[in-house]
Every structure is written in structure tokens, then in C-alpha cells.
């Protein structure tokens, strides 16, 4: 196992995070760490604050109090695109693709923070821009190949089956060369077969050295692939540990059974 060892500093550290929307205290005093190189899952009943926490980590909205530290840097004052170039990528619960663009173009947009060409560069199209574009296309094709969709590169993203759209989204996130990838319910809407493939894909991504943090409702998938699990309930952290530890935790059982 690559994880554990409390002395090792986590790639991502959440420290006493708080967030309220009006009167709803969506995230209350949550602290945990994500070690580099693991697959960590965030689970909890509906309304537990999982997606809110995702949006806080990816900079969609700011924390009320507390800190989120990525790679030893406080992310509090960073814009979303800064966080992406620091190495945080994400996918969405409902798959947010650029539907009218081709699959390849979608992944190319994922390379945005790793390429430079600006407005004038695009117009002048000097050799360095051409080279960058060519390399970008090669990289994008590489990631499409990685998720098994190289054959669909020129299809419109919106025309693909749902399972494939999810893979495109993962390829797009990978294209930004993240160190941490957040997957918001990656198995939602997939059939059993696709879910199995997704599990394999996530392991392959981890083996590339990318740390994964996922929110997932599919318990069998979560228990099978996660190295570590954090359980949230009503905005607060309920439990944390290996899948086996979490499954045995009575507080978790109570929360899930509504007892």
C-alpha cells in the first residue's frame, strides 16, 4: 500500500473547512488529508456536503473559514485556472462536455493550461505556435488512446453514448496533467460492465502517479478500489480510514441506515 504514514505530509490538506449557504451549514469543520498516489473516496448520504467540498477544493467558491492546502500552498486566494495549472483537475457529476465540439477538441481544451498560444500568436501562427499545436494534438490523441476512445476523436462529443462521454471528460481532465484529480460520482449512470472498466481506468490513472479523490455512491466500486475513505454526514466528518475500517464503524452504519 502506498498510503498511510501520518508523518508524511499530504498532497491535499483540508484544515477546519467551513462553508454556509444562507442558513445551511453545508460543510462544518472538516479536516482530512489526501496522501499522494492514493485513490481516496468521499462518501456520505445525500446532502452530506460532498459536492460542496469538491467545489471548495476546486475553487468554485471560497471557504468561510479554514484552509485548503495543496502541495504546501494555500489555495484560498487562487483563481480556478491557477489551481488547474497547479495540478488540480476535476470531472462533473452530470458530465459537462463541450457538446458541439469534437472529442479531440474537448481534450485539446483540457490542454489549455499546458499551452501558451495567445490572441496574436493564433493570428500570426508562427512556427513555434504550429509546433505547439502539433504537440498538443499528439498529446490529446495519447489521452484519448489511454481511455480507449482514439477511434472517436473526430465525432461530436455530444453524439457519444453516455459512458463514452464520461471517458472523454476523464481524458480532458488528464490532459491538464494534474497531480490530483477529483471525480464527482464517476460511476453515476454507468452499467455494471462500464463501472468495472471505470474501476480499471482509475487504477491505471493512479499508476501514472495521479492522486484521485472521488465522490461515489456505488459502494461496491468504492470499497473495491479506494485505498482510503472519508465519510461525511450532514456537513461534518463522521469517520475516516481504510474501506474495512469504515465498513466496521458503527457511526457510519447508523448514518446510512438512518438509525
Amino acid at each position: 500500500m502506498k498510503n498511510s504514514g501520518p508523518n508524511e505530509k499530504g498532497l491535499l490538506r483540508i484544515e477546519n473547512a467551513n462553508k454556509s449557504f444562507g442558513g445551511v451549514h453545508a460543510v462544518r469543520d472538516v479536516s482530512f488529508e489526501v496522501q499522494e498516489g492514493v485513490i481516496q473516496a468521499l462518501i456520505g448520504p445525500n446532502g452530506a456536503g460532498k459536492t460542496t467540498l469538491f467545489n471548495l477544493i476546486t475553487g468554485v467558491f471560497p471557504l468561510d473559514t479554514g484552509h485548503i492546502i495543496f502541495n504546501d500552498q494555500d489555495t484560498g486566494d487562487k483563481k480556478i485556472f491557477n489551481l488547474v495549472s497547479m495540478g488540480i483537475a476535476r470531472t462533473f457529476q452530470n458530465v459537462e462536455l463541450f457538446t458541439g465540439m469534437t472529442v479531440l477538441e474537448n481534450v485539446l481544451v483540457g490542454l489549455h493550461v499546458r499551452t501558451k498560444c495567445g490572441f496574436l500568436g493564433a493570428i500570426a501562427r508562427l512556427p513555434n505556435v504550429q509546433r505547439e499545436e502539433k504537440e498538443a494534438r499528439e498529446k490529446a490523441m495519447h489521452w484519448l488512446d489511454f481511455v480507449g476512445l482514439a477511434h472517436a476523436a473526430n465525432n461530436k462529443a455530444g453524439d457519444l453514448a453516455f459512458g463514452w462521454q464520461r471517458s472523454v471528460e476523464i481524458a480532458r481532465a488528464l490532459a491538464s496533467e494534474p497531480r490530483l484529480m477529483l471525480l464527482d460520482e464517476p460511476a453515476a449512470g454507468l452499467n455494471a460492465n462500464e463501472t468495472g472498466q471505470l474501476g480499471d481506468l482509475m487504477r491505471q490513472i493512479r499508476d501514472l502517479g495521479v492522486t484521485l479523490l472521488l465522490v461515489e455512491h456505488d459502494m461496491s466500486l468504492t470499497m473495491e478500489i479506494a485505498d482510503r475513505i472519508v465519510v461525511l454526514d450532514q456537513g461534518a466528518k463522521l469517520s475516516e480510514g481504510t474501506p474495512r475500517e469504515v465498513q466496521a464503524d458503527e457511526k457510519v452504519i447508523a448514518a446510512y441506515l438512518g438509525a
Binding site: L97, F98, V113
Partner: peptide
């Protein structure tokens, strides 16, 4: 197509 996703991939 999606301002949210564009910003999430770093645009």
C-alpha cells in the same frame, strides 16, 4: 458550450 466546464479545465 459550458462556461463552468471551460473554467474548470483552466480557461
Amino acid at each position: 458550450y459550458s462556461e463552468q466546464a471551460a473554467s474548470a479545465v483552466g480557461v
